[in-house]
Amino acid sequence: MPERFFLSEMEEMTGIAVSECYQCFRCTNGCPAARDMDIVPHRIIGYIISGERECVLSSAGLWACLQCAACSIRCPNGIDVARIFTVLRRMSVESGLAAQTNIHEFDTLMVESIARHGHMYELGTVMRYRLSRRELLKSYRMGIGMIKKRRIGLFPHNVADRNNIRSIIKKTGGRGK
């Protein structure tokens, strides 16, 4: 069921004039992930305008977006479509409608890594992600190849003033939901 306030909710939250979209498809035309989306970018914008909140927030396509910003740069009306996708992802997690959770899970683990070390500890984050999904052996060959060439750090680097990092994360509301 369409929700009348979805458009104004989005416009107020992002400061982006979504209603200026005239459905020219330029965003979708330049999108490298459009083929993997159930709802392509210009349609997402169109559905926001027509108030299809649930349909948009449960779209699997939100999670196919690579944040390359081709859409935003090409929109003749200056609509930052990539940012709309970012905000929609957060909303879809918060509303419990998210079509998938693994990307959000991985992003949250990365933020936790920063909370712990102040730097991104890639190996630790990838291992925790694989463990949580019980897919430890996935891309095992790639992992060994990377370790051989030292293309993944074995040990974390730590910021000295980690109290400052922890306080930043706490005061900004941290890891989200």
Binding site: Q67, T86, R90, F106, D107, T108, M110, V111, T172, G174
Partner: peptide, 11 residues
Amino acid sequence: ALAALMVNEGL
């Protein structure tokens, strides 16, 4: 990087 932006813009 993109991870923190995805989770929380203020962060």
